[in-house]
Design a protein around this nucleic acid. Structure first.
Lengths: 147, 147
DNA sequence: TTAAGTGCAAAATCTTTGCAAATGT
DNA sequence: ACATTTGCAAAGATTTTGCACTTAA
C-alpha cells in the first residue's frame, strides 16, 4: 500500500508506525465519525477486513502513542476518539466533557466545556478527571419528536 | 438464619428480598468499607463463601432495587457502594464526585461535592452525570511519603 | 408448601498470548 | 534483509444461562 503525503501518513510517520491497511481503516473510521466509536461497533464496521486481535493491538498502540484516547462509558465499554493535537505519549489532554447518548450510544466530545476545578480533601492528588453526561443527544431527541 | 431487626433485615424487607446468608455477607462488606468495592475484590473477600454467579445476581438485584450503586472506574471495572437513603428503584442519586485511587484502587464517594451544571448544546437532554477523578488518595500519599 | 434464591456445570463473550507468515521500510 | 505487524489458534478471564437442589417465608 502506498498513499503519498496524506494526513494518516504524516500521523503514522510521526509516531514511527508502519503504514498498514488495518491502521488506515481504523483511522478512516475514527476520523470520519464525529462521535467516539465503541470497540464493538468498530469490530462491526471492520467486519472480516481486520482481525479482532489486530484491532485490539492497533487501539492499544494508538492510545499509547497519543493518537486516540479511550473513553469508558457507563456500561464499561471502551470508546475511542482521535485526540486533538495537544495529546502526547506522556499525557492525554482529554479532560473535556463527554456526552453519552443512551439512544444511539454515541459519545460526543465537548471540547469547549472545561471541567470546573474540584476541591478535594487534604492529601488527595488529582492526575486526571473524567466527566461523562448520560442522556439523549440532539439528533435522537428530534428523531423521537418527529415519529 | 434468623437475625432480628438489624439494619440489613430492615433493608431487605423493605425491598421484599429474602434474608439469605450471601446477601448478608455482601451488605456486610459494602457497609463496612468506606470506599466503593470493586467486583473482583468482592469475589476475593467472599472466596468460597459465595458463588461467583450468585454474587453477580445479588449485585444486579441490589442495584435494581436502589440498595447499591455501580461506579465504572477508568479501567471499566464495576465498583459498588451502598446508596444513601434517597435512592429508589426509579432513580439513583449518585451524582456526586468519585475519586479513584490508582495506588489502592479504592473509590471514594465525595458526597459533599456537587457537580457544577454543564451547559450543553441545544437539544441535548441530561439524565445523569458522572464525574470520576483519578489520582492518589490521602492514605496512599502518606504511606508513600513514609517509606 | 412454594416461590425465591443458590450453586454447579456449561455456554457464550471478551481479552490476552504465542508464534509463524506476511508486509513495510 | 530485518524489524514490525498481522492473522490464526489457543489459553485465560469474564459474564450469562439453564436447571436441579435448597431455603426463607
Amino acid at each position: 500500500m502506498k498513499v503519498i503525503n496524506n494526513t494518516f501518513d504524516t500521523l503514522l510517520e510521526k509516531h514511527r508506525l508502519k503504514k498498514t491497511a488495518p491502521r488506515y481503516r481504523v483511522l478512516e473510521i475514527l476520523t470520519t465519525r464525529d462521535v467516539a466509536t465503541s470497540q464493538p461497533y468498530l469490530e462491526e464496521l471492520l467486519g472480516a477486513e481486520v482481525d479482532r486481535v489486530t484491532l485490539y493491538r492497533i487501539l492499544k498502540t494508538f492510545e499509547e502513542k497519543g493518537i486516540i484516547h479511550k473513553i469508558i462509558d457507563v456500561n464499561g465499554t471502551a470508546n475511542y476518539a482521535v485526540c486533538h493535537s495537544t495529546c502526547t505519549e506522556k499525557k492525554h489532554h482529554d479532560e473535556h466533557v463527554h456526552f453519552n447518548c443512551t439512544s444511539c450510544n454515541g459519545i460526543y466530545c465537548f471540547n469547549e466545556n472545561h471541567i470546573a476545578k474540584i476541591r478535594l480533601p487534604k492529601g488527595f492528588k488529582t492526575s486526571s478527571v473524567s466527566l461523562i453526561i448520560t442522556g439523549i443527544c440532539a439528533k435522537c431527541s428530534t428523531e423521537a419528536a418527529n415519529s
